[in-house]
Design a protein around this nucleic acid. Structure first.
Length: 741
DNA sequence: GTGCCTGCTCACGGG
DNA sequence: GAGCAGGCAC
């Protein structure tokens, strides 16, 4: 009995077809990761391919991590030499080694959306561009789409030379490139674009990677953009052309990010001798759920025909419920989860609430906090985008790459050193005049004319940074250096001055960052600050999701791709929200098709039970909207749906929500601070609790009470407290944050 | 140079 | 509804 016997015939065919281009059209839940991992195992164990010659590319670190884990399990020896990585990390690794060949320093910085905005803002100011007429966001999006299409600033200028409306964009794009290069910085899109550029300019570099990656596999191929396609195409452009791509055109949902669905639809055109294998047997969902998904997606035109089926039964019907308001919707979903868990029908961790926009998460959070249900929110403000974290990273970046002007300017007066905008402007001018970096200009502050006494404030800052650099090069750990920065700058003091409550959360986040640094150091033989900063820049929200935690998961439909849950709630199924207003009113029918694919992704996340909900009226941006049920619901036949009577309003829910808000805001911080855990860094169950049965404790929402029972579970303590005037409540210790009084 | 207030704009999705 | 830029007072 071999490991391949458990595969179905199509899966097996895909695993055994190792030579030449291969397209695997893998429907949702058809076991594509299984195929990929078994294929890697087969290459190594049966075809005696050196693991070093195999490359597997995914979109998220989470997917890469899971693939690595599964390959490790299947392959006895050498699995660690397989290059399993995301597009972006792969590019960073390559650029880190060779980017000096195309005019950058190998210790480059990666700019995120905020950084891009600061740069564009500065440029617009210099060029006298009115950002009210041409928004920064628009400019960044235009530059990003150009880069995704591998259109450089020069090519952009050439292409639109006669387009009156693009003249300002041409100038900004050009300036933007100059500024990034002089800061030795790359944005996300550059990572791909510069790698492709490197491959084209330096054939020897390309060849060395071609020789290494003799077998290439790409997951989620339907979401690749032109730059990613070229990256892969160049690597696979050898006589062997052992390129295997796996994807599902029906799950292509990243058009806004430049994904080109033609990459998958035209694969057979680019690679004429490509073998195509369809995986249609689904191992995840019930037939009712699959039928609903099939019905919805069949309304799209530009797609490859597929029909998902399962050997399992029809299962439950799909629940459809319409409510009067969004509050009622949230209340129903949360109480349904509560009831099912109490009845032993579900576990928290099998439940997911999915929605179209992040803004919808609030109401669910409110209800979940009130119901004392543990949850994990994916998305929202990324951990690494928080102010305090960006400040800390800016210090590290300043230390690592003195050329990153943006980082230096961010922290030169944080905490306050009395160095204001006037001084910064003068230093900036000096730097420009002398063609040196901002930090270098700071180093010779005493030579800058008319800077006056400000140089006395600048010098200690420069000395401080240089001291940190010395520490680092003489072997101090990054975590020690970070701790020194926090201490020496009195950063925590600064936070406290801004407000106690806020400071606490921010301080916890900084501690979390320190933990992450220590974790990084523990896992590396030779920790390197630049490498750490690169890793950190590429972290996505979804990477921190650990499905083993017993919690309800909240996230957007986009984040949910690739995941599965026993019990799924698709909330806000309303025309105008999903499909969004923008797509309904758009002239481009492709937009509605993408929206429908998103719906297909949502439906196919569910294993056993699917609930679709909508509200007649809903507050959106402070305005009440009245919406019809989503057109996608009408695309599902009635016989698949169970339309029980709508949830009635038991009492005036708006009143309740207002009352709950205060407790909610407080409690949310407690919950939120746990949002960014990673697999390595869970806030684990406490070693011991600082209260015992009989102690008086206080809870943020229920007030004071007496501990009546503590049960020690594997993951956490389950504590029962008899709250004064409230009664006995059961809760998890790590969530309840009970304080002994 | 700093801190506060107001008014404005933006609101789909993310590595 | 929220965050941010810009203006204004100290």
């Amino acid at each position: 009995m071999s490991i391949y016997d458990s595969l179905n015939p199509q899966q097996r065919e895909a695993v055994f077809h190792t030579e030449g281009p291969l397209l695997i059209l893998a429907g949702a839940g058809s076991g594509k990761t299984r195929v990929l991992t078994h294929r890697i195992a087969y290459l190594i164990e049966e075809r005696q391919i050196n693991p070093f010659n195999i490359m597997a590319i995914t979109f998220t670190n989470k997917a890469a991590g899971e693939m690595r884990e599964r390959v490790d399990k299947l392959v006895e020896y050498g699995a660690e030499s397989v290059w399993v990585s995301t597009f972006h990390s792969s590019c960073v690794r390559i650029l880190h080694r060779y980017i000096d060949r195309i005019g950058y320093d190998n210790s480059f910085t990666i700019y995120d959306a905020d950084d891009q905005k600061s740069i564009v803002k500065g440029i617009c100011k210099r060029l006298n561009i009115d950002t009210k007429k041409l928004r920064e966001r628009t400019i960044i999006n235009e530059i990003s789409s150009a880069k995704n299409e591998l259109i450089s600033a020069e090519e952009f200028a050439k292409k639109y030379v006669n387009d009156f409306t693009k003249q300002e964009l041409i100038k900004v794009y050009k300036e933007y490139e100059i500024e990034l290069q002089s800061n030795n910085a790359l944005d996300f899109d550059d990572l791909l674009m510069k790698t492709v550029e490197l491959f084209k300019i330096c054939p020897d570099v390309l060849e060395s990677y071609q020789r290494r990656f003799r077998y290439i596999m790409v997951d989620e191929y339907q979401d690749t953009n032109t730059a990613q396609f070229q990256f892969i195409r160049l690597l696979a452009d050898t006589t062997e052309r052992n390129l295997c791509v796996v994807g599902d055109d029906d799950q292509s949902i990243y058009r806004f990010r430049g994904a080109n669905i033609r990459n998958i639809l035209d694969f057979e055109y680019y690679f004429q001798d490509a073998k195509v294998i369809k995986l249609e047997q689904n191992y995840r969902s019930t037939q009712n759920i699959l039928n609903a998904a099939n019905e919805v997606i069949s309304n799209n035109k530009g797609r490859k025909e597929k029909r998902l089926w399962t050997a399992e039964g029809d299962g439950e019907k799909i629940q459809f419920k319409q409510f009067n308001t969004g509050y009622d919707e949230a209340e129903y979903i949360v109480s349904d989860i509560e009831n099912r868990v109490n009845d032993g029908l579900s576990e928290y961790k099998g439940c997911a609430i999915l929605y179209r926009t992040n803004a919808q998460s609030r109401m669910f959070e409110e209800r979940l906090v009130t119901a004392n249900i543990p949850y994990k929110l994916v998305g929202g403000v990324n951990f690494y985008a928080r102010k305090e974290i960006k400040d800390m990273l800016a210090y590290l970046k300043t230390v690592a790459n003195g050329r990153d002007d943006l980082a230096v300017r961010r922290i030169i007066n944080v905490p306050k050193r009395g160095i204001g905008l006037t001084t910064i402007g003068k230093v900036q001018d000096y730097a420009l005049d002398h063609n040196i970096s901002f930090f270098e200009a700071l180093e010779c502050a005493d030579q800058i004319s008319n800077i006056g006494r400000a140089s006395a404030k600048i010098i200690p800052f420069v000395d401080f940074i240089n001291k940190i650099r010395d520490d680092l090069s003489s072997g101090h750990l990054i975590s020690d250096v970070m701790q020194n920065i926090i201490d020496d700058t009195d950063y925590i003091e600064m936070l406290k001055e801004e407000g106690e409550e806020e400071a606490l959360v921010r301080q916890q986040n900084i501690d979390e960052l320190l933990n992450k640094i220590i974790d990084y150091e523990d896992n590396k033989d030779t920790p390197d600050l630049n490498e750490f900063l690169e890793e950190v820049a590429l972290v996505a929200d979804i990477d921190s999701l650990d499905e083993d935690n017993n919690r309800v998961v909240l996230m957007t439909l986009h984040s949910a791709k690739g995941l599965e849950f026993e019990n799924v709630y698709l909330a806000g199924m309303e025309d105008g929200l999903f499909p969004s207003y923008m797509t309904v009113t758009s002239d481009d029918p492709m937009e509605l098709e993408e929206e429908r694919r998103l719906c297909y992704v949502g439906i196919t996340r569910a294993m056993k039970r699917l609930t679709l909900t909508c509200a007649r009226q809903r507050m959106v941006r402070g305005e009440t909207q009245y919406n019809k049920p989503s057109m996608f619901i009408k695309e599902i036949s009635d016989n698949l749906l169970s339309m029980a009577e709508s949830f009635s309003i038991k009492n005036n829910s708006e009143d309740k929500v207002i009352k709950a808000t205060n407790a909610y805001t407080q409690a949310r911080n407690a919950f939120r601070s746990k949002v960014f855990e990673t697999r390595q860094f869970e806030v684990k169950k406490a070693e011991a609790l600082d209260y015992i049965v009989g102690d008086r404790v206080s809870h943020i929402k229920f007030g004071e009470g007496t501990v009546v029972k503590i049960i020690e579970g594997g993951r956490d303590y389950e504590v029962s407290v008899d709250f004064d005037g409230v009664g006995i409540k059961k809760m998890f210790a790590s969530f309840a944050k009970l304080k002994k009084i």
